[in-house]
Structure formats: C-alpha cells, structure tokens
Design a protein around this nucleic acid. Structure first.
Lengths: 109, 109
DNA sequence: TAGGCGTATCAATGGTGATTGATATGAGAA
DNA sequence: TTCTCATATCAATCACCATTGATACGCCTA
C-alpha cells in the first residue's frame, strides 16, 4: 500500500524542477493556441496549421514538444496524423491562469 | 452593470497572449522556489537568498520580474525589503500543475 | 512503380532571457 | 558625516529555443 502524502494544494520544493519543465513547454503562445484548438477535439496537423497561422514544420516542432511532455498524443490514420489532448483538464488549468494575469495593470487612483 | 462572459473553465484564444506572458514568468525554477518560499509568509530578500542558493543580484532580478507581473509585492521596512505573494492562490495553482507533469514517463507494458 | 500529398527532421539563424561581476542607492549605526 | 549593510541596477556574456528553408519519410493513388 502506498500513501500519497503530496498535498495538491501546495507547490512543494521537490516538485519545482518538474513544474518548471511543464511551464517552459506552456510558455509559448503557439503551443497554447494548439492546446486551445485541441480542446474541441482531435485535429490533424493540417487542420491545426489552418487554424493557427504558422508554418507546417514549426507546427510539427511544437507538436513534438507537447507530445514529449505528454500533453498531447498522436495517431496516424492513413496519410494524416491526428493529435488530441491527453488530459483535457489542461484546458481548465490554463483557464485558471487568467486569474493571475494583469495583476499589474495600472489602476485608477 | 457588467456581465462577465468569460468561462474560467476554458482557455480562450484571446487570452493566450496574457497567459503566455504569465507562463514565461513562471517557467524558471528559481522563481518557482521563490513563490514556494513565500507561501509560508513574507520574507526579506536576505531570507530568500539564504533559502534559495542564488546570488543576491540574481534574486533581485527575479523578484523584480515577479513584481512586474503582479505576482509579488514588496514593502521596505528600514534597511530590509519584505516580499510577499499578492495572491496566495498562485501556490495551489502551481500545485495543480503537478498533475500534468511526467505524463510521458515510461510505463511498464 | 512513380508521383503527389501530409508530416517529420535537419541545420542554421536570431532573439530572448538567465546569469555574473561590478557598481550604485538608500537607510541605519557609529 | 562617514561607514556599513541590504538591496537594486547596469553592462556583458552565455545558453537555450523559436523560427526558417531545405530536405526526408511514409502513405495513398494512378
């Protein structure tokens, strides 16, 4: 029997390396757009490239990075490769991030 | 009256720029350690520098970045400057990130 | 089998940002 | 006022990574 002592409510020091790696992957606007686009269901690379205006090889590069981190998965069907989110909760996670943006916007005195 | 139509459960395309900026700030292990350290309450710069093994000027640089994004705030008391989290929920937010790490770890077949 | 299409890889480049050493600022102590 | 301590800023360096253009791979169709 394994007891999981981790407290999901707290960032713990021993986690910072893993979480830093995840944040580095998510710290790119094109990749966030890819994730947002996949929220509505799987897409092939050409659909993603149409939706997000970047070159095909750059799209492939970003998808590879997202896959390496385990955020998306792929499945080849014929000529096409379809990508989808491995865990759709990543979307609501990123949605929550909005709470912490723009805290520094100037406020009327 | 203002109705907020945003859905906190979803990452929306128009948010990606802001969230990318936030993620870039959070994509650094030293900064995550600073946030984790501040979770237990305000600390002066020298306390942070003792807890996290980085140079004083580098610490100052990271604190400036966190402050610019509105994640921390500072208050000078005498010679010392005390930093604290502006919104403690950032800690549980980062704690949740652990769910999405290591998804790609090899698994026994 | 040849050709075309969808996707992936490779090498080179450029820009951004973390890190470092030196120096400046600002407040208390002597 | 002068010194010391805590912190911030500055300039330079280095490393990483997004982006690009060219090319390779894999699958389908004719």
């Amino acid at each position: 029997m394994v007891i999981d002592m981790r407290n999901p409510e707290v960032l713990e020091a021993h986690e910072t390396a893993d979480i830093t790696r995840l944040m580095k992957i998510l710290a790119d606007e094109n990749r966030l757009k890819i994730i947002a686009c996949l929220a509505s269901g799987e897409k092939c690379v050409c659909q993603l490239t149409d939706a997000i205006d970047i070159s095909q090889n750059l799209m492939s590069h970003h998808l590879k990075a997202l896959k390496a981190e385990g955020l998306v998965m792929d499945e080849r069907r014929g000529r096409w490769v379809y990508y989808s989110l491995r865990d759709k909760r990543i979307n609501s996670f990123l949605g929550q991030a909005g709470k912490f943006c723009n805290c520094s916007k100037p406020v009327c005195p």
